[in-house]
Design a protein around this nucleic acid. Sequence first.
DNA 1: GTCTATACATCGATAGAC
DNA 2: GTCTATCGATGTATAGAC
Lengths: 204, 204
Amino acid sequence: MKYSSETERKIVEAASTVFLEKGKTGARMQAIADRAGINKALLHYYFRSKDRLYQEVFERQVETFVGEMLRAFEGGGPFRAFLESFISNYIDAIARRPGLVRFIVWEISQGGNNFVKLLKMHLASKGFNSIPIPDIIRAAAERGEIRPTDPVQLMISLMGLCVYPFIAQPILENILPGLSVTDPQFLKQRKQAVLELVWDGVKP
Amino acid sequence: MKYSSETERKIVEAASTVFLEKGKTGARMQAIADRAGINKALLHYYFRSKDRLYQEVFERQVETFVGEMLRAFEGGGPFRAFLESFISNYIDAIARRPGLVRFIVWEISQGGNNFVKLLKMHLASKGFNSIPIPDIIRAAAERGEIRPTDPVQLMISLMGLCVYPFIAQPILENILPGLSVTDPQFLKQRKQAVLELVWDGVKP
DNA sequence: GTCTATACATCGATAGAC
DNA sequence: GTCTATCGATGTATAGAC
């Protein structure tokens, strides 16, 4: 998480921007160098190759994102409180990094398996051996807090409701003029809408 | 929609596969030629450049997809029936082309604006000047068929619930072993789950 | 129309001076 | 550590024979 020099920091920052925008294959070392205000040779001096630089950027990005994401997973308390906290934290974590989710989705479909590896590592470090949401849902149902529901379907719904606006951002903001999915007011409305929809669907 | 020669058909088919899998920048003309069983020179003979070939493929893909998608939009009848038909048609249209949604989302975020242009064209040809869903929702609310809801939020929720499993497919199938989002049984369960969730959220 | 051979451009990577 | 200059590989595009 720390940098051994200012130049290295500038490189990683520039590389993050370019890779997130263009993807691994679309990114150009020249573009990264330009944005960092240095030349291509220095990139190879600090990071041997494009592959390694990409790896570095990908891990850093996923690192911070997964960290915040997992805080949204922390259960405990009544289910309705969990819901409210999950939705709010999850949406905020995504909204803070426009483009990161699209990048991750695309890069994973390109064969990058590091994301899931990192995710599982972080989960393990918190004592989980899988995504805890289905278990939280199951437990709430057994306690009678919510009516019986397919836990996997509900988890997919919950995540989809939160993530989709940001994945479809370029389309939505085009076909719905005036809409900005990172606008604080939209975020607030979105959280409310998701909470109401899901709660209505599971409340006893 | 038709081809002027068998070779052209083979090219477009091969190019579709490669572009969808690798994206515009990741795709290689050599890979397309190999898959089509011809050589690179022929690609340029039929389509002057990679750009034009890509354009051709993109439009054909979006064409058929948007066509099916719009059939899902057709309203009329009671709202609950619209919901059921929309969810089923929309999910089927997406499931029939695994990878296409991820491709479209990524390519649009790369600056490709053709999708929205094509979408609006198709909408216009059906007599709409924008996505009709918010209006359908508004009308149903006015008729008292559903309780008052933010039409835009509901539309985003509805689409997100349907699309998300396919966008997140590589992640979901990895963290949920045994899951296959294109499996007929999953599709059936998914449709049911979405319908119940949304209907519970809007029924009077 | 289809092929081989090759030109031309771009990109990642390295050598070597400072 | 940082630069300029350049190499070698790869990718798109074209010339020309058949």
